[in-house]
Amino acid sequence: MQPGARHLAQLNIGRLVAATDDPRLAEFMAALDRVNDLGRRMPGFVWMMEGSGTPGTGNSGTEVPGDPRMSVNMTVWESVETLEAFVWNTLHQRFYERRAEWFESSGEMHFVMWWVPEGHVPTLDEGLGRLARLRAHGNSDEAFDWSWLEEARRWRAGNCSRMAAE
């Protein structure tokens, strides 16, 4: 692909410690719309998979088949740098750092990125397929984590623990 002809897609999944209406998730659920709206306003934001559209549910209405406690986030960004700016330089980082309060530890990779042509809107099946490829084969041009990207300067500088990629 020619430079500028591609965008960066990312999928992040996690199993919530309880149902979305459980008091243990109240703070997380209450912040979803704010964090997602912030992401949509960031320079370099292209697209976000939408859940049910119900306020306060974020993308929790988009379920991985067979598990209603799986929370899914999938977005597309103009570049690695624009995704990093959102992840590490906004309110998102504070909630990311507290993820263990709201998500079970899966013990396996739960985050994947891949390049898409400009204008392409990835499907959940596409994202889950990329995640499966990363889990099975490790980093490649088809599916990768932060460590695969030379441009991931904030991640390399220590703004992201290794656990984020695992």
Rank of each mutant, 00 (worst) to 15 (best):
P3R: 03
W77P: 15
F86E: 00
E27M: 09
E126P: 11
M29L: 10
R130A: 07
G61Y: 06
F111V: 14
T90H: 02
A165C: 07
E84T: 05
V46C: 14
E81C: 11
E150G: 07
D21L: 10
G127N: 07
Q2A: 07
P23S: 09
N12F: 05
S60P: 10
E126V: 07
M163Y: 05
V112E: 14
F45S: 10
W148V: 05
D125Q: 12
E142S: 11
T57W: 04
V121Y: 00
L131H: 08
D21S: 12
F111C: 08
S106P: 14
M113S: 12
F95M: 13
T123S: 15
E78L: 07
A136H: 06
N159T: 01
L149W: 01
M49N: 00
S161G: 14
H137E: 15
R69A: 04
A18N: 12
A19K: 05
R34N: 08
E150T: 06
Q10D: 03
V35D: 12
N89P: 04
L128I: 03
G158D: 08
H110Q: 09
G51I: 08
P55S: 02
L32Q: 15
Q93G: 02
A136K: 11
L131S: 06
V17Q: 01
W155S: 04
E63N: 05
G56H: 09
D141Q: 11
Q93L: 15
L25Y: 13
F86K: 01
G56K: 12
G119E: 04
P55E: 01
G138K: 06
L124A: 02
M70A: 07
F28V: 00
S52E: 09
T123Q: 03
V116Y: 03
L83G: 04
A136D: 13
S79K: 12
W77R: 04
M29Y: 07
W77E: 04
E166K: 00
A30W: 10
L32P: 15
L11P: 13
M113R: 11
L134Q: 02
L124V: 12
T123H: 02
W148N: 02
T75L: 01
L38W: 05
R133V: 10
R162L: 09
S79H: 11
L8E: 05
T90V: 13
M48L: 13
N73R: 03
A31F: 06
V87C: 02
S105A: 08
